[in-house]
Deep mutational scan, measured.
Amino acid sequence: MDGTRTSLDIEEYSDTEVQKNQVLTLEEWQDKWVNGKTAFHQEQGHQLLKKHLDTFLKGKSGLRVFFPLCGKAVEMKWFADRGHSVVGVEISELGIQEFFTEQNLSYSEEPITEIPGTKVFKSSSGNISLYCCSIFDLPRTNIGKFDMIWDRGALVAINPGDRKCYADTMFSLLGKKFQYLLCVLSYDPTKHPGPPFYVPHAEIERLFGKICNIRCLEKVDAFEERHKSWGIDCLFEKLYLLTEK
């Protein structure tokens, strides 16, 4: 054995408090879109979701699917093309516009009456609605409950000090017999300040354990050449399924 860690023996890093005071403002996230600093976007979609999607959907149609901090995630069109209703929230209007443009979807925009100064973008087909606002303002819009949440790049982007508020927001959107698919990253948080932030299993239990059954479905090596600039040499991604207790 050469000592290389595999996707099945990932350790939890003990120094989980080192990132707790890290803060990125909404304006800084918007600047990332304006300046093209969106390496977190996956042009081909998320491979773990693609692998498990049909198993999760079980042939159902007409589900309501929520994408927190959606950006221009191509997976939104995957669900819409399968007959589901997609709702996303994203602070960057540019990111939302790029989604519709890159997916060749016509759309309209209208003000969100409950949140002055914000807009919702709706596909002409009517099954994709993307709200351009802070996720913490979203419950004011009465958008209803969801059958499924796809959380990739959301919890790991939320400032650590806001995670409890974020989890409570997610709980307010969950319908009966929900499936909450959650991706988190595992790396040494003493070497990279984030975002994306390190979210250990214990944190998921703390945030969601009282209401959800929590199961880790898969762990994969997600390290890429660009991650060397973070000062790390190891990065794993974990896919969790959260269901109603």
Rank of each mutant, 00 (worst) to 15 (best):
D2A: 07
D2N: 14
G3A: 10
G3D: 12
G3F: 04
T4K: 10
T4H: 15
T6E: 12
T6I: 12
S7A: 02
S7C: 14
L8S: 11
L8K: 09
L8V: 07
L8F: 15
I10Y: 12
I10G: 09
E12Y: 02
E12G: 07
E12K: 02
Y13L: 08
Y13N: 13
S14M: 08
D15A: 10
T16P: 03
T16D: 06
E17Q: 12
E17W: 10
V18M: 12
K20D: 06
K20I: 05
K20A: 09
N21R: 08
N21G: 09
Q22T: 05
Q22N: 15
Q22A: 04
Q22K: 11
Q22E: 12
V23W: 10
V23R: 12
L24C: 14
T25M: 10
L26T: 06
L26V: 06
E28G: 13
E28R: 08
W29R: 04
W29S: 06
W29K: 02
W29A: 06
Q30F: 09
Q30W: 04
K32T: 12
K32N: 08
W33K: 04
W33C: 08
V34Y: 07
V34R: 12
V34S: 13
N35T: 13
N35C: 14
G36V: 09
K37H: 14
T38S: 10
T38Q: 12
A39H: 08
F40L: 06
F40A: 04
H41E: 09
H41Q: 05
Q42D: 12
Q42S: 09
Q42G: 07
Q44G: 11
Q44K: 05
G45I: 13
G45K: 10
H46W: 12
H46P: 08
H46A: 10
Q47R: 10
L48P: 02
L49K: 05
K50E: 13
K51H: 14
H52S: 09
H52V: 06
L53G: 07
T55M: 11
T55L: 11
T55S: 12
G59S: 03
G59A: 11
S61K: 05
G62W: 06
L63I: 09
R64W: 01
R64D: 04
R64L: 03
V65A: 06
V65P: 00
V65W: 04
F67E: 00
F67S: 01
F67D: 02
P68T: 01
P68H: 01
P68D: 01
P68L: 00
L69Q: 04
C70H: 02
C70Q: 04
K72I: 04
K72W: 02
K72Q: 10
A73G: 07
A73S: 01
A73N: 06
V74K: 02
V74S: 09
V74P: 07
E75P: 03
E75C: 03
K77W: 02
K77M: 11
W78G: 02
W78Q: 03
W78A: 04
F79A: 06
F79K: 00
A80M: 09
A80D: 04
A80H: 03
D81K: 05
D81L: 04
D81H: 04
D81V: 03
G83W: 01
G83A: 02
H84R: 00
H84N: 05
H84S: 03
H84L: 05
H84A: 13
H84E: 00
H84Q: 02
V86P: 01
V86G: 00
V86C: 05
V86A: 05
V87L: 05
G88F: 00
G88I: 01
V89M: 05
E90C: 06
I91C: 08
I91W: 11
I91P: 04
S92Q: 02
E93R: 11
E98S: 09
E98G: 10
E98N: 15
F99T: 02
F99E: 00
F99G: 00
F100S: 01
T101V: 14
Q103W: 11
N104E: 10
S106V: 13
S106W: 10
Y107M: 09
S108V: 12
S108A: 09
E109K: 14
E110C: 08
E110R: 08
P111Y: 06
T113S: 14
T113Q: 10
T113K: 01
T113E: 13
T113L: 09
E114Q: 10
E114F: 07
P116R: 08
P116G: 07
T118A: 10
K119M: 05
K119T: 10
V120A: 10
F121N: 01
F121I: 05
K122C: 09
S123M: 02
S124P: 14
S125E: 11
N127S: 15
N127C: 10
I128T: 01
S129D: 07
L130A: 03
L130D: 00
C132D: 02
S134N: 12
S134H: 08
S134R: 06
S134W: 03
I135L: 14
I135S: 00
L138A: 12
R140M: 03
R140G: 10
R140P: 05
R140T: 09
T141A: 08
N142A: 12
I143F: 15
G144M: 12
F146W: 00
D147V: 01
D147R: 02
D147Q: 03
M148Q: 02
I149M: 10
I149K: 00
I149Q: 01
I149L: 10
W150V: 06
W150T: 00
D151M: 00
R152Q: 06
R152W: 04
R152K: 12
G153C: 05
A154P: 01
A154S: 12
A154M: 05
A154E: 00
L155C: 14
L155K: 00
V156S: 07
V156I: 01
V156L: 05
I158L: 09
I158K: 00
N159G: 05
N159T: 04
N159L: 03
P160T: 03
P160S: 05
G161V: 14
D162G: 06
R163W: 12
K164M: 13
K164Q: 15
C165H: 04
C165L: 11
Y166Q: 01
A167K: 04
A167Q: 05
A167W: 05
A167S: 09
D168W: 05
D168Y: 14
D168E: 14
D168Q: 12
D168G: 13
M170S: 00
F171R: 11
L173N: 00
L173E: 00
L173Q: 04
L173A: 02
L174W: 11
L174F: 11
G175K: 14
G175P: 11
G175W: 09
G175A: 13
G175F: 09
K176Q: 13
K176P: 09
K177S: 03
Q179R: 14
Q179P: 00
Q179A: 12
L181D: 00
C183S: 14
V184E: 01
L185V: 12
L185E: 12
S186C: 11
Y187S: 08
Y187Q: 02
Y187C: 05
D188R: 04
P189H: 13
P189D: 01
T190A: 09
K191T: 04
H192T: 05
H192V: 09
P193Y: 15
P193C: 15
P193V: 04
G194V: 03
G194Y: 13
G194R: 08
P195W: 04
P196V: 04
P196M: 00
P196G: 03
F197W: 05
F197H: 09
Y198M: 14
Y198K: 15
V199G: 00
V199T: 06
V199E: 01
V199Q: 02
V199A: 03
P200V: 03
H201T: 06
H201M: 12
A202G: 11
A202V: 11
E203W: 02
E203S: 08
R206E: 08
L207T: 13
F208K: 06
F208Y: 09
F208N: 00
G209M: 15
I211M: 15
C212W: 04
N213I: 02
I214Y: 00
I214Q: 02
R215K: 05
R215L: 15
C216V: 11
C216A: 07
C216N: 13
C216Q: 12
C216G: 09
C216L: 13
L217T: 04
L217M: 12
L217W: 14
L217C: 12
L217G: 01
E218C: 14
E218M: 13
K219T: 15
K219C: 15
K219L: 07
V220P: 03
V220G: 09
A222V: 15
A222K: 10
F223M: 08
F223R: 06
F223K: 02
E224M: 08
E225G: 09
E225R: 11
E225A: 11
R226C: 15
H227E: 09
H227K: 13
K228M: 01
K228P: 09
S229V: 07
S229T: 02
W230K: 07
W230A: 14
W230H: 03
W230S: 09
W230D: 07
G231P: 07
G231Y: 03
G231R: 10
I232G: 05
I232V: 08
D233G: 12
C234R: 08
C234V: 15
L235T: 00
L235V: 11
L235S: 11
E237R: 06
K238Q: 15
K238S: 10
K238T: 07
L239K: 02
L239Y: 02
Y240K: 01
Y240C: 04
Y240R: 00
L241Q: 10
L242M: 06
L242Y: 02
L242G: 02
L242F: 09
T243F: 13
K245V: 05
